[in-house]
Measured scan of single mutants.
Amino acid sequence: VTLFVALYDYEARTEDDLSFHKGSKFQILNSSEGDWWEARSLTTGETGYIPSNYVAPV
């Protein structure tokens, strides 16, 4: 499992996005959609889309 960590805070703009804070960790579920990845937050357990340029591999 590849884990990613948030580099910045992000406020969701749609109900499909995940809001998160810098330092939040994610499991990436689908990275084939270009700049928006489907991810599960390891902090909240919620699933949604995150901007790929806001995260980096742990």
Rank of each mutant, 00 (worst) to 15 (best):
A6G: 04
W36S: 06
K22Q: 08
A6E: 00
K22L: 05
L3D: 06
D35W: 10
D16F: 15
V55C: 02
K25Y: 15
V58H: 08
G45L: 06
T14V: 07
V5I: 13
K25S: 07
P57L: 09
L3M: 10
L29Y: 06
V1M: 13
G45I: 02
L29N: 05
I28N: 01
L18D: 00
V1D: 12
W37R: 02
G48I: 04
T14S: 13
E46Q: 12
S52H: 07
I28W: 02
W36I: 07
A12C: 05
P57D: 05
Y8M: 09
L7H: 02
G48S: 02
L3I: 15
A6N: 00
G23N: 05
I50D: 00
W36P: 04
K25D: 02
N53G: 11
P57G: 05
L3G: 03
T2G: 11
L18Y: 05
Y8E: 07
T14Y: 15
T47D: 04
S41I: 10
G34Q: 12
S31P: 10
V55Q: 00
R13W: 07
S52C: 12
T2W: 12
W37M: 06
K25E: 09
L7I: 10
P51T: 02
E38L: 15
G23E: 03
K22V: 10
S19F: 03
S24L: 05
T2Y: 12
P51L: 08
P51S: 04
Y8K: 07
I50N: 01
K25C: 14
S31E: 09
G23R: 02
K22T: 07
N53C: 14
F4C: 07
L42A: 06
G45Y: 06
A56I: 13
A6M: 02
A6Q: 01
G23F: 05
G48A: 03
R40M: 12
D9I: 03
T43I: 10
E38Y: 15
I28M: 04
W37S: 02
D9C: 09
N53F: 10
E46D: 08
T43P: 05
L29W: 06
V58L: 14
E11M: 11
G48H: 03
S24Y: 14
G34T: 13
T43E: 15
Q27V: 15
Y49R: 14
F4E: 00
R40S: 05
T2D: 11
D16L: 14
A39W: 02
G45D: 06
D17Y: 14
G45T: 03
E15V: 12
V55P: 00
A56V: 14
I28E: 00
F20C: 02
Y10G: 00
Q27L: 15
Y8C: 14
A39I: 04
Y10M: 02
G45P: 01
A56P: 01
W37D: 00
E38M: 15
S41N: 15
A56Y: 09
Y8A: 08
Y49D: 02
V55F: 09
F4D: 00
N53Q: 11
N30P: 04
V1L: 13
T43S: 13
W36L: 07
L29R: 04
W37C: 04
D35I: 10
T14E: 09
L18H: 02
D9W: 05
L3Y: 13
G45W: 06
S52I: 06
P57Q: 08
W37Y: 09
I50V: 09
T44A: 03
D9L: 03
E38A: 08
W37V: 06
Y10H: 05
R40C: 09
K25Q: 12
L7Q: 04
P57K: 08
E11I: 13
V5A: 05
I28Q: 01
I50W: 02
D16Q: 14
E15I: 11
A39D: 00
D35P: 10
E33H: 14
S31R: 13
I28K: 04
D9V: 03
S31A: 13
H21E: 12
A6T: 02
L29C: 08
V1A: 12
I28L: 06
S24C: 14
I28V: 10
S19R: 04
S24D: 15
E15Y: 10
N30M: 07
L42N: 04
G34Y: 09
E38S: 08
L18T: 03
Y10E: 00
N53R: 12
R13V: 12
Y49H: 07
G45E: 05
G45K: 05
Y49M: 14
Y54A: 12
N30I: 07
E15P: 13
Y54S: 10
S24R: 03
D16E: 12
P57E: 09
D35K: 09
H21Y: 13
D9H: 06
Y49E: 03
E46S: 07
P51R: 07
S52P: 07
T2Q: 13
T43W: 07
D16G: 15
L7V: 07
Q27W: 14
Y54W: 07
R40K: 11
Y10Q: 01
D35F: 14
N53K: 13
R40L: 13
S41Q: 07
A39Q: 00
H21W: 10
